[in-house]
Design a protein around this nucleic acid. Structure first.
Lengths: 215, 215
DNA sequence: ATCTGTGAACTCGTTCACAGCT
DNA sequence: AGCTGTGAACGAGTTCACAGAT
């Protein structure tokens, strides 16, 4: 296990989701090229990624879906389960909460935080909401290691520091700001605005030169 | 302009946002290393990216913020403005709608679509909602080239095909499914689930080996 | 015949390092 | 002195292509 790349981790998550789907369809084994088609990669890529976690398929029969799922799970998941803290219950924060409500048991948003006194102490989409002042103490006491930031850009840095102060080790950041944190803390940025602007740019390219078959 | 990479496009969007912020603070020029610190890249990277769009700074004084903003804008934006169609008005779709309501004039979500008759023909977060049956005809008539997919995974492929059928050239896809489309259509995936699982994995790594200063 | 595992080649993106400008 | 512009070196990640397995 010579330190696997973040890109591979991301793809493993995607593979796993597709595997569960295949299993629901009653399939029991799968070839690398099938998994590739399902996830938008190449067959060689899939094989390399699976090699990285040490799971070996069998020639001619490919990979056993249940075994592979299990291998990925034991590689990615904490057997004790993991709790997640979400900060910022605006439209986006509540949508995320609803999205993950009743999610897999091993990864659950179990604490939400907001400044709005109208939200504090209520239960929203199955998740108890606390005052932001309690962020550090609660994450620390419950050993929460994963945080999600859904606050406005202005407050993102402050919140990030509080999360770090509470012992959180990885953050999903929806705010359009680069977070400045100790570099042993992992940050995954989700920048919706940039995604939309990028898409708009490529649509515009199309209009500018109506030829071209390139992607 | 030998076809600029998608990564550079993404960073240009980020630079622009930071430039606007600097301008609001009354600054008039900026150095590559400052922009780098603000956006989490390296100074050399910033210079390369700006080189790509042909804007040239001046040694010792760096880049003029207003000029550079203008250069990026004329590179990225359609002077006629661009309309965006959003499909799927669940929690996430509505949150996105709210998020972009009153956004920059040149890039606006002007049509939303859902199957739910209770939402059709209403105005939600400043955006008129139509039945999905009208998706193709409306996008085609209004020459909408950018779409956002916020429907459940099961329906994502069908919706994507309808968007493509209506002449949409670029799609932001929030559904956890790989879309299968003609490859002249640009797809930007935003996979919230994978992002959270990735973060959880890196938090877990931390717990597994409490040493290590690597990012 | 058709798959996997993997060294080797390659591609793309990033960083280095330095010439040139002010 | 302190910046930008850029050829050149570098590196991570991806694909090629084929040996080995069934």
């Amino acid at each position: 296990m010579p330190s696997i790349s973040g890109k591979t981790i991301g793809r493993l998550c995607v593979y796993r989701r597709q595997l569960q789907r295949l299993r629901d369809e009653g399939k029991s084994n799968v070839y690398s090229h099938q998994l590739a088609a399902l996830t938008g990669g190449s067959a060689a890529q899939v094989r390399r990624d699976l090699m990285a976690i040490g799971y070996r398929g069998t020639p001619y029969h490919g990979y056993r879906i249940d075994e592979l799922s299990g291998s990925i799970a034991s590689f990615l998941d904490d057997p004790d389960g993991q709790e997640v803290a979400l900060v910022g219950l605006g439209n986006l924060g509540r949508a995320i909460l609803a999205y993950f409500d009743g999610w897999r048991p091993h990864l659950t948003i179990t604490a939400a935080f907001d400044v709005d006194p109208g939200k504090v102490d209520r239960v929203i989409h199955g998740c108890k909401c606390y005052a932001i002042a309690k962020l550090e103490s609660i994450t620390r006491r419950r050993k929460i290691a994963v945080g999600v930031i859904c606050v406005p850009a202005r407050e993102a840095q402050t919140v990030a520091e509080k999360l770090a102060g509470g012992g959180v080790k990885a953050i999903v950041n929806f705010a359009p700001r680069r977070l400045h944190l100790p570099d042993d803390i992992y940050v995954e940025d989700i920048d919706v605005t940039t995604a939309l602007e990028k898409a708009a740019f490529f649509a515009l390219e199309h209009k500018r030169q109506p030829d071209s078959k390139a992607k």
